[in-house]
Amino acid sequence: MKQEITLPQHGRAVRAFAVLLSSTRRGARLARLLATAQLDEWGVTSRVEAAAQIVAELAANAMAHGRVQGRDFRLGLALYGGGAVLRVEVSDARGECLPPEPGHTLVPDADRESGRGLLIVEALADRWGVSPGPLPCKTVWAELDLDPAP
């Protein structure tokens, strides 16, 4: 399912990709694989590993914290600004379960095995945030400024 997305700050998407995936560990793993395959198909060569890690973290969060029985999560990728900005979006069905705002992500205790996903997103992304709706959903997004093609 491909769709065109328009964001005021970036104008019209040059390329866009979206897919629904099951809110399972398998769906979260598949999100990363599909994202890297799509970026390869588009010829994106800069910051691919950062993008793949962001997709993995956001998909894992959608599976762990945004899961509603019988509902999928949505992975969206879009290139803006002539391909200079990559936007990653992961939407889930738990709009009431919002993550902390950018810059307010708490560092978990050192002995905890989880809770670092948004810290990783914050470290890798140039910008990230949360967009509410449509009810009952929310979208967590992250943007990467890409190096221009040689």
Rank of each mutant, 00 (worst) to 15 (best):
V90D: 03
F17V: 05
F73Y: 01
V14T: 12
D145T: 15
V121Q: 04
F73A: 00
L33Q: 15
S91H: 01
V55D: 08
L77C: 08
S91L: 02
N61R: 01
R26Y: 11
T24V: 08
V44T: 07
V19D: 02
E101Y: 14
D109W: 07
E57C: 04
Q9T: 06
L77I: 07
P8V: 15
H65K: 01
K138D: 01
T139R: 05
R12Y: 13
P136V: 07
L30C: 03
F73C: 00
T24P: 04
R26P: 02
S46Y: 07
R47S: 04
T24W: 10
S91I: 01
D109A: 13
G103P: 12
G82F: 09
Q3I: 07
A18D: 07
Q69F: 04
V85Q: 07
S23N: 09
A31F: 05
A50H: 12
V130E: 14
G66T: 05
G66N: 09
E143D: 14
A37L: 09
P108D: 10
A50P: 01
G83K: 05
R112G: 08
S131N: 14
V90K: 01
E4I: 14
G133Y: 03
D72N: 00
M1D: 10
L144E: 11
I5Q: 07
G43S: 02
Y80I: 10
R25W: 06
V88I: 15
S23E: 03
C97G: 03
C97L: 13
L58P: 06
D126P: 10
E101V: 07
A60V: 04
L30H: 03
A149P: 02
H65F: 09
H10C: 04
A62T: 01
P8A: 15
L33H: 13
L75N: 10
L77W: 07
A28V: 07
Q9W: 09
P99C: 08
V90I: 11
